[in-house]
Amino acid sequence: MTVRIGSVWDSTQQVLAGRAGMLAPFAAIGFILPAVLQAIFAPQMGMAEASVGASGARLLITLTSVVLGIWAQLAIMALATHPATTSAEASRTAMRRFLPLLGVAVVIGLVIALAIFVPLVVLGLTGFDFQQAVAAQGNPALMPPVPPAAGLFLLVYGVAALVLGFWLMARLMLTYAVVLNERRGLGAIRRSIALTRGMTWRLIGVAILFAIVIFVAVAAAQGVSAILFRLILGGDSQALVLGLTTLIGAVVSAGFMTLAYVFIARLYVATAGEQVGGPTTGGLPTS
């Protein structure tokens, strides 16, 4: 079965138009609230970095943000996958599939961490001075030289990792949707690769375009809002201006993230077809 990206996009627009009121609360709790918590508590905790309590609070906020974000992602995809799903059902489904998804995400994260660790091992084996690199604090003039053998390896490894990264980004795009809708754990990775067969380049193009658009949109929204808030509140309200600007950026980012997860859910429906459980063949609701 050939899946057209244009058809998936049309389906995504229908879901956004028909279920915006149901999607918005999940986006607000999962994507906007964590940014607000960071904006409120991070500056205060920064004043007492050595405090054990501050470090614990920072860790708690980070963990809360991760939990809320994953829960919101799953709930949004549940609403976008099955037209008859209610908000309560989407929330329950997200909580039920939270731990399986977290397990898959941890495994993927460990693989990525291992891939990042390999160049560090090579640098260490070739005599790279990590202490001097840390002391340089990002200043190129103070950075220690990279041994020629390590430099060649890093170049080849970096190119290969970039190509493989783009491929994985496309082929694993449906992993979360599979975990949500099918009783799979790590098997969701293989399933996602199978579902996206023949779509690699198109999905890479969509992902790159989306990343560019969201970067430009968030940067523009924050830049314009920062200027307006400074004019309205004055130069003595830098903290408030920063907080409001962060909130505006979080709102814009949440909108695009919601769009992304709805698109992924509709792509899953298009590729999985009749194997999707639940009432996915009916018309999309208008409210």
Rank of each mutant, 00 (worst) to 15 (best):
L155D: 08
G234T: 09
V269C: 07
Q14F: 05
L186W: 03
W167F: 14
G277A: 13
I214C: 07
T200K: 02
Q38I: 13
F166L: 14
A207H: 06
G138T: 03
L186H: 08
T271S: 12
V66D: 12
F41W: 09
R171Y: 06
G223V: 07
A194M: 12
L123Y: 00
L63E: 08
G53F: 06
A72S: 14
Q73G: 13
I76W: 00
V3T: 11
E49K: 10
A35P: 02
G282Q: 10
F153W: 01
F41N: 04
A17S: 15
F153T: 01
R97N: 05
I32V: 15
A239L: 12
A75D: 02
G6V: 03
G21D: 05
I227T: 14
V218Y: 01
V206I: 13
G235Q: 08
T2N: 15
V213I: 15
I208D: 11
I212N: 04
R202V: 07
L102E: 03
L60T: 13
Y157N: 04
Q131L: 09
I193G: 08
G53R: 03
S253M: 07
P119T: 06
M77G: 01
L114Q: 07
P140V: 02
P25A: 09
M169A: 15
A28R: 00
G56D: 10
I116H: 11
G30T: 00
S237D: 09
L110Y: 03
L60K: 07
E182A: 09
L63D: 09
